[in-house]
């Protein structure tokens, strides 16, 4: 574990806590894409299939449980909580994410570290995570004004993978024969997809103005 990876995991945890806070505090999920939350639930379930078979550390197992449980809890709230579900932007959150799931799985069948169930599903979860934010970014563009907590959620969710890229560079430089080509390539694509969001987020922060993504 190095400082970049720890910063990445803590930033990722913070983004999830911010989203839980927004939903709990405002009893509303306006501006949040349920499709992105569902994609993340799929990402965590297929990435952590080894949750019960491989024990790496208490930290590792604890974080995996937190990520899976929180993503499922958020999806449940947005679908079934009597108050929260009413504020879901159903008519704006229309990204046909089936293609993202299909394309990620097809790519995982082609490019993986080993041709085994676990490795193919792991690669699938890596590719799917890279594009999982797309429904959320589309929803932010369509819904105009973005509330602070939702904007902060997306910002930290994008930042965490940038820390992981620093972690991979650090490990590549310090650990002999360390490679993470699949996660590294996918992580660069994932972080690049946030580029315009980061730009408008920085502008809104600099001008102390409301975050607004151009339609």
């Amino acid at each position: 574990m190095n400082v970049f990876r720890l910063a990445g995991d803590m930033t990722h945890l913070l983004s999830i806590l911010l989203l839980l806070l927004k939903i709990y505090a405002t009893k509303s999920c306006s501006g949040v894409s349920r499709k992105t939350q569902e994609l993340y639930a799929i990402v965590f379930i297929f990435r952590y299939l080894d949750l019960f078979t491989d024990f790496i550390s208490v930290y590792n197992t604890f974080m995996k449980v937190v990520f899976i449980a929180s993503s499922l809890a958020i999806v449940w709230c947005m679908r079934f909580h009597p108050v929260v579900r009413r504020s879901y932007d159903r008519e704006l959150d229309t990204f046909r994410y089936f293609f993202l799931v299909g394309a990620s799985f097809a790519l995982a069948l082609i490019w993986h570290e080993k041709f085994s169930v676990q490795e193919v599903f792991w690669a699938f979860s890596i590719y799917l995570e890279a594009v999982a934010i797309l429904p959320q970014l589309v929803l932010l563009q369509r819904s105009g004004n973005v509330d602070n907590l939702t904007g902060q959620y997306v910002f930290f969710l994008g930042a965490y993978r940038a820390f992981y890229i620093l972690n991979w560079i650090y490990r590549y430089l310090t650990e002999p024969r360390f490679t993470r080509w699949i996660a590294g390539t996918s992580g660069v694509v994932q972080t690049a997809l946030y580029a315009d969001f980061f730009y408008y987020y920085f502008i809104s922060w600099k001008n102390n103005s409301k975050l607004k993504l151009p339609a």
Binding site: R5, D50, W122
Partner: peptide, 10 residues
């Protein structure tokens, strides 16, 4: 020896 599945990262 191919790396086993063990993924130490989240």
């Amino acid at each position: 020896e191919e790396s086993s599945f063990l993924k130490d990262e989240l």
